[in-house]
Nucleic acid binder design. Sequence first.
DNA 1: CTCGCTCCCTAGCGAGCGTTAGTCAGTGGG
DNA 2: CCCACTGACTAACGCTCGCTAGGGAGCGAG
Lengths: 200, 200
Amino acid sequence: MTGAGTRDTVTSHAVLDTALTLFAERGYHGTALSQIAEALEVRTPSLYNHMRSKQELLQTIVADTVRGVLDDFHAATEGRIEPVDRLYHAVLVYARRHATHRREAIVVNRDTSSLEEPFRSQMQALRREHEHALRAIISDGVAAGRFAVDSPALASFAIREMCVSIARWYQDDGPIGPEQVAREYTEFALDIVGLGRIGS
Amino acid sequence: MTGAGTRDTVTSHAVLDTALTLFAERGYHGTALSQIAEALEVRTPSLYNHMRSKQELLQTIVADTVRGVLDDFHAATEGRIEPVDRLYHAVLVYARRHATHRREAIVVNRDTSSLEEPFRSQMQALRREHEHALRAIISDGVAAGRFAVDSPALASFAIREMCVSIARWYQDDGPIGPEQVAREYTEFALDIVGLGRIGS
DNA sequence: CTCGCTCCCTAGCGAGCGTTAGTCAGTGGG
DNA sequence: CCCACTGACTAACGCTCGCTAGGGAGCGAG
């Protein structure tokens, strides 16, 4: 029926994956479809059997990633009430994701501006949702006397972007695993909101 | 002699400045020379009276910025011996620079990969110089018992990238000035290296 | 006034881009 | 065994890119 058969062929997933790698490496505008095709050992027009356009590739990557971040966040924080507990798990999954999904993170953070409207605005709204949710945890923690920061907005920016940047230096074949990085960075986050100064 | 006269004309500095703005907005590959020309109210080929190539614009931006970061660092740390003192001032100038030179920071961090070799490698080497210098301060502080971190490398990555990201959210017309942001972020950096846990 | 320089202009080159049309070989189902 | 279909191919489209060539207007210096 939907047979890929034994013939040498290419799947939609393979196209998306290769695009992801190249977009992360050279950026959306810096990557030509001919390069994606070459990496798949196929002629450029053949890509159109597996996608609608170059822009659609970027949209799929961004949408999937942003959705994943939000799902992660809710799964990690739901049922937890203590601000320390909520922040701990929110940062843990966020940091871990940036070690395990490096390419996605790089593309989303660099090339969201290359998305066509109105898709771009929709994605930015979703990103702000996560940003506001994290900031709310910090604000709640300050109000409850568990955290000590002058500006929850600044602290939440610092924590978020610190995690995002993991994608820029982390190496899969390095000496340190995603879980370990995530834990260390979560420690940093708790330091930033002043847990070390207050004492847990 | 080198007269711009009273005629409506354009300077090399204006071209570089407009390129900087547009590169920061849409990226190097996402910006066409025609867009730079349009912003300057000039036809595209006229740009070549003030530059040699599009690539040269990027090289100038990156070189000037990287050089500035390194100069800042040395000016801020020279003569200081105490790790806390050195880290404090190193982070202060680094964070401040990313609030006052947002466009430069965005371009350097996003588009260094669009530099042609061997220039790209040279710039990356200079960037690593700053990275290693900051890491050395942390390592020294740990050895001296002033800081407490498991991995100086991780802490230095976190601090650096946290500062870099200021460029991505800071607004010149916002309620908070560069100096204030820099001070807050320097506090965060000291938290990360464990000053809050040890006590100053 | 005139010479020479600066700098913008129009015209156009060659290359590469994303994308479409139309063809055909190989494959699995009946 | 044949037929329909998937998915690769070649050819070519219109467009935009970075960049060059060559001409001409405005300016300061003498």
